[in-house]
Design a protein around this nucleic acid. Structure first.
Lengths: 343, 343
DNA sequence: GTGAAAGCGCTAACAC
DNA sequence: GTGTTAGCGCTTTCAC
């Protein structure tokens, strides 16, 4: 950070502009001049000061990504994809986690935690519409995940209801009738996020299977421990489901652990479907049938959304309309519903 | 990013300096003045431009963290801790992954990928001493992990040899004698990173158990799939170990999956010890005995190292000597060695 | 306690 | 093609 454009210019006996041209690969520079400047750059070990460039251009080349928890492999894997997609557009990624705490989500939105950024990709859990409505920041914001806000921000999420219905449908197809839902939240007046729970209800209803609310397992979080606790509670309450549809893979994995401890076989006694297709679900004594969202597509759409808006601001024209985007998903059938032998 | 200090100054009818004083909580400002300026700030919705501040102060408040792969929960969990520790020092974290590719590790070191950063925390896999020796950057660099370089950079890693010995010792204590090592690399002339393999050899030798090189399972990577493949190869070669010490938890998990497929019981037939204590190892049909490094300490030491060096540069005095730091670790005994009932 | 002005390193008009 | 120059928005001497 010590040697500047000016130093190089002096050394090469040219103006700063010329050096700048060379550094930025400006086309109209004579090869001879380019070589001369380049030599000075090499000799001095010049490295452009990005901060200065950013100040001048009004851009930092940084996209912030805020997820609830990096300990959840879904978000870790997603972050990896976002980093890759961002790199394709010459952006780097500032990563933050909110631990699903509303105040942290809010701070992130307002740019208080990740302060230098051109855009923000946020996967909210607790954030309310009112929090977002008051957002003063004009840096582009993209929302990820199940929660929907009626606000003009791009939103990227698979069709959670359809996915849940497919998962439940799969269990019904296998002849299961007492299908529990694991991972509902009860500390909320409204449960705005639980499209997956809605899907569970809808599919059961459509297929003429009575919806038994006693089969809804509540939990505080969505980690493995929460899944284990919810499953234990369900079994302790005397329920004996023949299938479990879990809010996510971690909950499913926690639940399977408890079943294993209690001598329940998966899938013979209880079939299990998860959600997220984290790598972990492909291993373990019983591999997990799960909904696989196209994570790479989610990352790509998110980054593109930010970049597009950035270009719109700096470029000519109108800011694009905000959109709902629904990347693809698929049901991956594994041993937790099919058993070891396959079908 | 539109309203600047100057705008606020005009609005409040004061100078830029005064506004700056208020924004930065400079102590010697009369309360009345402070209130007046604050009002202008609020009315205009002023937000300081961090980039400009950074340019001026020569600091960005960003620490870059580069790990091989976020899909490995060890690194994801570590990243979470680094973010937390960085936040304690008012830094944010730019995250990158190198996929264990030497050229990417090199680019990161040279600041080509994460370009705006005050310091770099790097967990290298393939990087060679010569790569690092030529590093021109003067931004602080901290190295994490098993690899050692004889260079003046802070290096943070648990005592891998001691940890490996403790793991192998535990298996020996349980009466196991044919202890395989899973996750060695064979594509390297020297295996500079494999302190864990050294520990395996040393402990066996010390305890008078013959070291059988046929029990070393090689793999290309350190993911679950690599562990599964290595285990399958070992078994296919006719070896029948009574224990496995895996390079990391993912390899152990992959190996356990293969054993389960082949009807080998853990720990009755084969006891297993992993390395990293990822959360995943606490679940599954058989929970995994593993070496648990103090990840939070690693993160704390890494961030502190960067911050300390930064303060040294900007502050008064001498740059601190580079250090080797060895955070604590412990052996966590679970079902893969103890069985379900405990001891 | 507050103001004026210089300058961090770079880019982009605009002139030559 | 290349040089001159004016800022980007902020902090920071240094006067007052």
């Amino acid at each position: 950070m010590r040697v500047s454009l000016k130093d190089v210019a002096e050394r090469a006996g040219v103006s700063v502009k010329t050096v700048s041209n060379v550094v930025n690969n400006y086309p109209h520079v004579t090869p001879a001049m380019r070589a001369r400047v380049q030599q000075a750059i090499d000799e001095l070990g010049y490295r452009p000061n990005l901060t200065a460039r950013h100040l001048r251009k009004g851009r930092t080349g940084i996209i912030a990504l805020a997820v609830p928890e990096l300990g959840n492999p879904y978000f870790a894997e997603l972050a990896g994809h976002v980093i890759d997609e961002a790199a394709r557009h010459d952006f780097t990624v500032l990563l933050d986690h909110t631990q699903g705490r509303r105040e942290l989500e809010l701070l992130v939105c307002q740019g208080f935690r990740a302060r230098v950024m051109d855009g923000l990709i946020l996967s909210p859990l607790e954030l309310e519409t009112e929090d977002l409505r008051g957002r003063a920041e004009e840096t582009p914001l993209v929302l990820l995940g199940e929660r929907r806000y009626d606000l003009p921000y791009d939103h990227i999420a698979i069709d959670n209801i359809a996915a849940a219905r497919q998962a439940v449908g799969h269990l019904l197809d296998l002849g299961r009738r007492r299908i529990a839902f694991l991972g509902a939240r009860e500390d909320r007046a409204q449960q705005p996020a639980h499209l997956r729970l809605l899907g569970w209800r809808a599919e059961l209803a459509d297929r003429g299977v009575p919806v038994d609310e006693a089969l809804v397992g509540y939990s505080e979080g969505w980690e493995r421990a929460d899944g284990a606790a919810a499953m234990a509670r369900l079994l302790d309450s005397g329920q004996r489901p023949d299938a479990v549809f879990a809010y996510n893979d971690l909950i499913a994995i926690g639940a399977m652990r408890v079943m294993s401890e209690r001598g329940l076989r998966v899938p013979e006694d209880v079939a299990v479907v998860g959600f997220d297709d984290v790598t972990e679900s492909r291993y373990g004594a019983v591999t997990l049938t799960t909904i696989a969202p196209d994570k790479r597509a989610i990352a790509r759409l998110a980054v593109e959304s930010v970049v597009k808006r950035l270009d719109a601001v700096h470029g000519d024209g109108g800011v694009p309309e905000s959109q709902e985007m629904h990347p693809a998903f698929s049901l991956v059938e594994r041993e937790s519903t099919r058993g070891r032998g396959g079908r």
